[in-house]
Nucleic acid binder design. Structure first.
Length: 111
DNA sequence: TGCTTGACCGACG
DNA sequence: ACGTCGGCCAAGC
């Protein structure tokens, strides 16, 4: 498996995150078939050129936080995009129990 | 070639 | 709620 293929699988999985929901780096890696390699998700996104039709902003870390330095341009952009979709931030964090993307087979989300 | 760096994670203190 | 540590491994130098 080439690195490019892995990145493609990661990006394909990111595309599946519905509007208004979020997923963690580790979650995306697992869904794409790379358990224990959350960094692969970060790497694939890092290499995604701006302008790509990809909901990269819906990917946050396992603590519910944005993985950019608070106050940075990237941080503010990601936060704004999420808020535009109705994802609320409380004390700089997203409530994963509420907004994390889950498959239909898993436990339903409380609204 | 070999070493360092990360848009990370989970466990543990 | 922090900080540290080991695991992970593609890229970059």
């Amino acid at each position: 498996m080439k690195a490019e293929d892995a990145h493609a699988l990661i990006r394909a999985t990111v595309k599946k995150i519905p509007r208004g929901r979020v997923a963690t780096y580790g979650q995306i890696a697992r869904e794409a078939g790379f358990p224990k390699q959350p960094r692969l998700t970060g790497y694939a996104l890092h290499h995604t050129p701006p302008g790509a039709r990809l909901p990269w902003h819906r990917v946050i870390n396992a603590q519910g936080k944005i993985s950019f330095p608070p106050g940075s341009e990237a941080y503010e952009t990601q936060k704004r995009l999420l808020e535009e979709e109705g994802v609320l931030f409380l004390r700089g964090r997203v409530d994963l129990a509420r907004y994390q993307w889950r498959r239909a087979s898993e436990a339903p989300v409380l609204d």
